[in-house]
Write a protein that binds this DNA or RNA. Sequence first.
DNA 1: TTCCTTGCAAACGATTTGCATTGGA
DNA 2: TCCAATGCAAATCGTTTGCAAGGAA
Lengths: 135, 135
Amino acid sequence: MAERLAVRGERLTSGRRAVVRLLGRADGPLAAAEIHRLLESVPLSSIYRTLTVLHEAGVVAPHHTSGVTRYEIADWLAGHHHHVVCGECGAVSDVVLPDDLEASLEIVVEAVSSQSGFLHDGHSLEVEGTCPACQ
Amino acid sequence: MAERLAVRGERLTSGRRAVVRLLGRADGPLAAAEIHRLLESVPLSSIYRTLTVLHEAGVVAPHHTSGVTRYEIADWLAGHHHHVVCGECGAVSDVVLPDDLEASLEIVVEAVSSQSGFLHDGHSLEVEGTCPACQ
DNA sequence: TTCCTTGCAAACGATTTGCATTGGA
DNA sequence: TCCAATGCAAATCGTTTGCAAGGAA
């Protein structure tokens, strides 16, 4: 993963390492502000720059919810999964599907992309709902 | 649909009607700025307010992509459908699935929500890809 | 006539950027 | 050593809001 940055002539500094470690421990995508709250020593602007670099290097993936952009470790590093988003509080939680369901989802995705003429390179199922805490 | 607003003590004015008509003609969700470009006479702030009111009344549904919020006519009025999003230019296009695929998608959604403990009230499959123009 | 809606401008929150300084390979 | 990364402050972008004036029921 470090090579992923090195190849692009970029450095894996302590600040960047801290952001990656934090995202690795999280159980859902995090917004820049949320990361900054947990990593007070790293200024917000550096977190934004780090997330941009990591995204371009394919290490993290952005995810848009209710006006804020949250990032998480990319699928190829953390494993493929989906999200449930709480319509009340905005909480996002990861869900991993059993292989058979993932397979039938893949069939649906193929259908969608062929019907639209888009070249698809990924998919994410976003389920809207109400989280246990808000119910 | 007009009643939907009337019941809430709100009015279906010419500006609001224009926004709804425009969204009805669009073949994908539109952002406030995009609507404003097509409806120059309506000030941006009124468009934002109109979209908020229409959302609360359940007439339109918000959709978050690459940092901007786009709105489209709600499923119960326009029919249930999904989106393909272009990773290059951000274009969003609607896709309607045949019943059998929609049924298998529903099974997957059930699995996701039961696994997460969320009470699910809707779903949207977001397929990321590259649109014909950007290929 | 009564409220709701509109317009405009100012306020806001999230994200980006310029520039001098620091630090990693 | 050299070039990329950092810190800070100012700028930008999408979106929201206060308030006085206009318009629908």
